[in-house]
Design a protein around this nucleic acid. Structure first.
Lengths: 215, 215
DNA sequence: AAATGTTTGTTAAAATATAAGCAGGAGGCA
DNA sequence: TGCCTCCTGCTTATATTTTAACAAACATTT
């Protein structure tokens, strides 16, 4: 944290993985590790791991390695996992419901506060303590509640409009599951999960392998 | 396709995006485009787009541009979207069901043939023509049916074991939603969708913005 | 206490990915 | 036709990312 230069996105994408493996080490009862060991677990080179971590400060000890719990806490702090976040989900269809019910965000404090949809059949239902509300109540809701992250799970046709509405109400972090690239101002961060693009890539490599096999 | 060198993964990840935007151009009734126009739409540089496409052959015409439909078909062929794929989903929980019901794979021919789970309450239910079967029937099923892609939506604790079973039965393409890095032989391609890592990255950037704002 | 083996933090080099630049072909239009 | 503009395909330059290398710090053993 002593270094305020912009950290490469590639580094940021690797941090959650380190965090996860450090959690596994903890579960295994180990309290000391090394870049070499982490390299074997993650598949990243030991050199890269050391360099990644040193972007934020020297957490290790020469000749010894890293203290598992300490390093994990440091990464949590860097990512911000030591804080609580309130989430809303726009679009309570398949994906929206799956996210609301997803238990995989363990070890971090994300709370789904509400879902929004325009389908009257869904409005009023609740998912894990979170109520599905009418999309028309969105603005009013955001004016009262303090929400950190909004998840867009709407059809792509309305995703841009929904995103703009969110931003207007103060949202600055969007997790986007609609197959669409949202045009947003610089001060909004959008993290995309484009499932179709992911599947299309997989399809490409699947065919490449088959091609190779038949050569 | 004249070039058999390995194409960079970065290029492959961009192709689905080109494909999507070409589809939008078609919908808008345009039959001609250019790298400059695609650049404005996608946010990638025109130069990069031209270079990406030229990995696979010259689809454009100097002084004119690209024929939208032709280029779209070429990309579809490169990715393999001109073929049909049979999919099974292992784990019929939140995510598994969401994928089964997901209609966003339009314009490509993916068919979810079956889901597998061990929960007796789920077994026998059907999602969009696909039946949820007992996980114990998986091997037998794979010996009879010809499946292209398996989607892992199980808890992470069993994901590795399930993956190994799939590979043993001939599966070579895995779309993995479990928060775990599967150890697989080289001839298996795994495409990961690590939702927690994605959310953690978003969290980092969210905090960075707040930090900047308060400085 | 000295010698030896580890492992970090950091710097330098290599590899990869992205952007810029430009020659030449194609279309449009006077 | 001849001139002008546009746009690709390719080559060269820049930027980014990854890997390699190594001195200094610490732990362990003798």
């Amino acid at each position: 944290m002593n270094n305020n230069d912009k950290i490469s996105p590639a580094v940021i994408r690797r941090l959650p993985k380190y965090y996860r493996y450090l959690g596994e080490l903890t579960k295994m009862g180990l309290n000391k590790t090394s870049s070499r060991e982490l390299s074997e677990m993650t598949g990243f080179s030991a050199s890269q791991i050391r360099q990644d971590l040193n972007n934020f400060g020297g957490f290790g000890q020469q000749g010894f390695g890293y203290d598992v719990e300490n390093l994990r806490n440091e990464i949590a702090r860097i990512l911000g996992l030591d804080k609580k976040y309130k989430i809303i989900i726009i679009g309570a269809g398949n994906i929206g419901q799956a996210i609301a019910n997803y238990t995989g965000f363990y070890e971090a404090d994300y709370e789904v506060v509400a879902l929004f949809d325009k389908n009257p059949k869904l409005i009023g239902m609740s998912m894990r303590n979170a109520l599905i509300k009418d999309i028309d109540e969105l603005e009013e809701f955001l004016n009262v509640e303090n929400i950190d992250i909004a998840v867009i799970c709407t059809p792509k046709s309305v995703s841009q409009q929904v995103a703009e509405q969110l931003v207007q109400c103060g949202i600055r972090a969007i997790w986007n599951f609609a197959p669409k690239d949202l045009k947003m101002p610089d001060y909004v961060h959008v993290e995309n999960v484009h499932l179709n693009e992911s599947l299309f890539s997989l399809t490409y490599y699947y065919n490449q392998m088959n091609k190779k096999k038949s050569e």
